[in-house]
Design a protein around this nucleic acid. Structure first.
Lengths: 358, 358
DNA sequence: CTGTTAGCGCATTCAC
DNA sequence: GTGAATGCGCTAACAG
């Protein structure tokens, strides 16, 4: 009994342990403090062992590592970030993630950041300025180390705040007159103009467009019309555009201009709809109707007929944007801060045959 | 002079202020401390004014708000998160973001989380288990409040750690025997089997498959073959599959089985390739070859012929997963923890005509 | 209604 | 090599 009694000191503890507050009680993660205790060293030594192994004795290192493994220790990045004043986090702002064009950019962004130990926080603005504002505030609150935005941030109220805080920003997929900070993009007006000249050089006439009504697509339409020197028929479809709206768009265009002979679409998805609508109406592509898309989607080369399109180095945009942010985070200057990645017209069967005589 | 001298106290400050360390010196964001000082109240009062306005005098409230606005104050969510032990962040793990099927899920996830003040952190595993592990460690380190994963986490080493920490996890797009925690998905084997029965019921014979070689697609192929009761020809293409690989897949399939009459594809992108390859070979769809895809992509209904496919409620998966995580974060129990969202075969022109007699 | 105290988990000073 | 203090920015407890 005496022996048992001598162990009584623990009973209190046992009882307390058994009084589980609730199933919902969070089993808190192991802290560095606990690791240090388990390894029999001080907090800071444990910290050093894990962060700078070469600054610690080999034996100590091993003990700490074993303790960490045994406890399943995972460092709290929020605590580290609070101290270091950086989150190792970069935000990507896109209108909606399901716009296929941005996907290679987002993918490359994520991969490049990941390789440097950074994570991507995704934000969808939904083509809505007030959403964009709210989102930016939250992201600034999260102390993201950089922001990559699809499109231009322009001279919004947010822009000033972001600049003041010195948060690196890369605007992408566009080329404005005065970037907020850094930029990787191209001129949509020039791209549109290039397609118009491409059509004209191949003697396609009676041009028209099916275009989503988002900002950048509008710029391409304008560039196209200016280069063509004419007020061309445009079927506007709501953004984000779909194959179905592409079909509807061609239908509308043909109503307004039955003799239409060539059409430029604001995306390859739209162009796919145009191709299908043309086929359903017995129009041969390209003999009766030339079609050129935009974005050079992964499926475009495999279509029948293969679709001509405007190729954008989408993945490169993501890679470069990530690299720029990372450079800034490393305290290096980024030059040039503005990169025009240009575009390239990929000519395929949907525009190659010589046109029928009028 | 005396007057000037009395102001001398400031001179030191001015000089110090002018000694800018560098252009690279981070212009630190305003802290709550500064807001409180500017408003002439204590730190905690400022905190309360911003967080719980009704617990503070109207006059104080206004002063704090003005000070915050003037300083461009944005609360540091890392600090708040460290204190509160949550990050208001949820991780999404996908193989690669550019797999179109997951997009509506990711979109709905982001939107639902955003509405609750949570942000999505994106992780790409690249179909790589070791990447997945590293990523999970980092995300746990970030103290994400939940994890939504495309596919199953299975009995990996991570699974145990995650369970111990009590991090809510939703596995999606699959239906394993024993979910780690919560799950929103469907049975791929059943989906494959259903398509096989669908073909057979419509008297399509000489079946074959073009399939990506990822885990879930393989399950569908297996279910398909079992339901068809035969060892069918399968053209495997690397994941993530493309339209081009769909074309190549049909070519291979026809080499092995020239009399092929119906093909099931692991995605609508692959099916698009199959449709194009069929057209290039002069095969009519569906008269000569029936085609059924998977995923019911946004373009499938608009193709010529319209593509039959298996529709998955992808956006619903995202919404439900987000809701489950949010419920858990709110301390509520989630029942049921496993949801089978099922699937639906959408019959369109690519499989409707009655088959040619053999 | 407001302020003081303490601490979230970690890393950067300094000492020894 | 190692350790003891200090503070990153904020908020939940308690005082007043």
């Amino acid at each position: 009994m005496v022996t048992l009694s001598s162990r009584n000191g623990r009973h209190g503890n046992v009882v307390i342990v058994n009084v589980k507050k609730d199933a919902a009680a969070a089993p808190r993660a192991a802290t560095l403090h606990q690791v240090a205790q388990a390894a029999g060293v001080s907090l800071i030594t444990a910290s050093r062992a894990l962060a700078k192994p070469d600054k610690v004795a080999a034996a100590t290192l091993q003990r700490v590592r074993e303790a960490a493994a045994a406890l399943g220790y995972v460092p709290n990045l929020m605590a580290g970030g609070l101290k270091a004043q950086r989150s190792r986090t970069v935000a990507a702002l896109v209108p909606v993630i399901s716009v296929p064009q941005f996907l290679p950019t987002v993918q490359a962004l994520t991969e490049t950041l990941d390789a440097a130990g950074y994570q991507l926080v995704l934000g969808q603005t939904g083509y809505d300025r007030s959403r964009e504002h709210a989102l930016l505030q939250t992201l600034i609150g999260r102390r993201v180390d950089g922001i990559v935005v699809a499109g231009l941030l322009g001279a919004t109220a947010d822009a000033e705040g972001i600049r003041r805080l010195g948060i690196p920003v890369v605007e992408t997929w566009d080329l404005g007159p005065q970037p907020l900070d850094m930029l990787v993009g191209f001129s949509h007006a020039q791209a549109g103009a290039a397609v118009a000249r491409f059509f004209l050089a191949r003697r396609w006439r009676r041009l028209g467009l099916v275009s989503a009504d988002d900002e950048r697509a509008r710029q391409r339409v304008q560039g196209f019309c200016e280069a063509a020197g004419a007020d061309l028929p445009v079927a506007w479809v709501p953004a984000p555009a779909t194959v179905a709206s592409g079909r509807a768009g061609l239908a509308e265009l043909l109503r307004r201009e039955p003799r239409l002979r060539a059409v430029h679409c604001s995306s390859d998805l739209v162009a796919l709809g145009v191709l299908n609508e043309a086929r359903a109406r017995g129009l041969r592509v390209p003999q009766d109707l030339a079609v050129c898309g935009f974005g050079d989607a992964d499926f475009s080369a495999a279509l029948e007929p293969a679709l001509s399109s405007v190729r954008i180095a989408a993945a490169e945009i993501g890679r470069r944007a990530a690299t720029m942010i990372l450079q800034r985070c490393a305290g290096q200057a980024v030059v040039p801060a503005v990169v025009d990645v240009g575009f390239e017209i990929v000519e395929r069967a949907s525009t190659t045959a010589s046109p029928r005589r009028p």
